[in-house]
């Protein structure tokens, strides 16, 4: 969202593609805009504690996504997945089962792979969130993404962003994993096309590419 347009000058978040003022208004409603204007709760949030946030009212939070900080209006019940996709236009994390059973929504939170569908956006405050988009090296693919292309590690591709995030998380903790560790790392990412053998190869290749950069 574009904060300038909302009359909010935070100077933090510049612009996210695909999100318009109108989309913003329809998704949070006008009452929420009032909440934004009157909210004085941000300082508490920054200290880690949060005063009660009313049901059905959007509240202001700050999320750090791909090293960029965003001030956002969210309802307490919204998942991080929903906020990433619908508010920030970051559609790398995919919507699958929305109950922790497929892994399509995998993102990194403080470098650890987690399901964005089972994480409340309000719970992700103060954490470092990395999405698929954050793995890009400028306009180029990042090493893990590049490895998946080179090893042809996808068929329909729906699970691929989640697989890539899980491999990225593994490599951040263990730069030189063996095959068993890679298999283990993507065991929470369901591929119904059965591309796992190539995914494991891509994991090994990704470790090589990362080591080179």
């Amino acid at each position: 969202m574009n904060n300038e347009e909302n009359g909010e000058k935070t100077g933090q978040c510049r612009c996210v593609h695909g999100f318009t003022r109108r989309g913003f208004l329809t998704s949070v409603g006008v009452g929420a805009m009032a909440a934004l204007a009157t909210s004085g709760r941000l300082s508490a949030a920054q200290e880690g504690a949060v005063a009660e946030r009313a049901a059905e009212k959007a509240v202001v939070i700050t999320l750090t996504v791909n090293d960029r900080s965003h001030r956002l209006l969210v309802e307490p019940r919204w998942s991080l997945l929903y906020v990433l996709r619908e508010q920030l236009g970051l559609t790398g994390a995919k919507v699958g089962c929305e109950r922790g059973e497929c892994g399509a929504c995998t993102v990194l939170i403080d470098d650890l792979p987690r399901y964005a569908c089972l994480t409340l956006a309000v719970e992700a405050e103060g954490r470092r969130i990395t999405t698929l988009e954050g793995l890009m090296a400028g306009e180029e693919l990042g090493p893990v993404q590049q490895a998946f292309v080179e090893e042809d590690a996808m068929q329909c591709g729906y699970c691929t962003p989640g697989q890539i995030m899980s491999v990225e998380g593994l490599l951040r903790a263990r730069p030189q994993p063996d095959q068993a560790e890679i298999r283990q790392a993507v065991s929470g990412n369901l591929c119904r096309c059965g591309a796992y053998p190539h995914i494991v190869k891509a994991g090994l290749r990704a470790a090589e590419l990362k080591a080179k950069r």
Partner: peptide, 11 residues
């Protein structure tokens, strides 16, 4: 989407 609820994170 789930039901509405309020949220608090005590210190």
């Amino acid at each position: 989407m789930t039901v509405h609820f309020s949220y608090v994170r005590p210190a």
